[in-house]
Design a protein around this nucleic acid. Structure first.
Lengths: 185, 185
DNA sequence: TAGCACATGTAACTCGTTACATGATTTG
DNA sequence: CAAATCATGTAACGAGTTACATGTGCTA
């Protein structure tokens, strides 16, 4: 059984063959919005996936001194991915450092607390705008595919909707907290 | 500088002195809603915090063969906590395994996909009800403190509001996705 | 009398980050 | 000609989980 990162890589390779380098870049965006990894994690994981027969590579003579390896998913890999994707998950361990700060925010001066929340709010505004730009782009590019659950576009769009909903909720909460902090300061 | 876990422990000790065991329990609930740690992580961290002068302990002769150590925060620890709590944060690396599954959900049969989302939905319903019960409890127990940003109750309440908002948004998204999956299946 | 709550610690292992290491091609 | 991009790998370290280890007092 691959690690979570392994399934992230399989998920990308199920859409198109790629090099380790291209996979690493995809792990910044769009996957980076909900999962990340650095190249130092990617290369060993690719070796493990290949040893397990879930992917194969072909050497494409590219630039640089090393082999440029193009990876593709195998039929076995594709089956493993589909099984994992729909398999039920235990409730994951939530880890939100901001909430941990908020839990102890009463020890700080309300003005300093408000500064923190204002910065967070700005990040959410920025991210929300980014998502909404992508939303418009996707709707324009492939309106039909977005409605068909068997297309990769549908999957991508579902994660995007989640992102938009999350940022909107976070933003609302920031505004509520700022009102609370301001009202008493 | 303590680790994030260190600040979680300081945050608890700023409210009341506790043993390592009691701290470990608090890391299941209420802190467990946004940060967790097992006792094997807690005990070494307490030793580090004490070495740094942020906490002190007093041996209280309790049951069992070992010393029962009651920890309390020092003035230095309290200052370190307040500084950290209001300090700006870089955007944390999001890690959402469910989104990773959704990203590859197009490879699975829509009925299996719907099963997964239905289970997730149930978890959110359950957690939301739990939060709303706590909400009612807190409003009844300390209505005045909830409005004063310098009380621990205010901080706890702010994290709770975030939790409620998050679960509600997640629930809405599950319903949207189920409609999409059902409509085409 | 068996199991659970209280109570504290260490060891082995996995996952992830940062730093180390190399080197060609393209662009400013 | 300097910097960024393409491209692949290893090493050291930190954070977190699971398992190992011990032992008392209370309750069903």
């Amino acid at each position: 059984m691959p690690t979570t990162l392994g399934y992230a890589l399989l998920g990308l390779l199920a859409r198109a063959p790629r090099t380790g380098y291209a996979l690493t870049q995809a792990l910044r965006a769009p996957i980076g919005y909900f999962w990340t990894a650095s190249h130092s994690q990617v290369y060993p994981e690719l070796a493990r996936l290949e040893a397990a027969g879930l992917i194969r590579h072909r050497v494409v003579d590219g630039p640089g001194p090393r082999d440029t390896k193009s990876y593709r998913i195998t039929a076995t890999g594709r089956r493993a991915l589909a099984t994992w994707a729909a398999a039920p998950m235990p409730r994951p361990t939530e880890r939100d450092e901001l909430m941990l700060k908020v839990f102890s925010l009463w020890t700080a001066a309300p003005e300093r607390a408000a500064d923190l929340v204002t910065r967070q709010r700005a990040m959410h505004v920025e991210r929300l705008a980014e998502y909404q730009r992508i939303d418009a782009e996707m709707r324009a590019a492939s309106p039909a595919e977005l409605r068909d659950p068997r297309t990769p576009e549908f999957s991508s769009y579902a994660t995007l909707r989640r992102g938009i909903s999350f940022e909107a909720h976070a933003l609302t909460w920031c505004d509520w907290l700022l009102a609370q902090l301001g009202g008493t300061a």
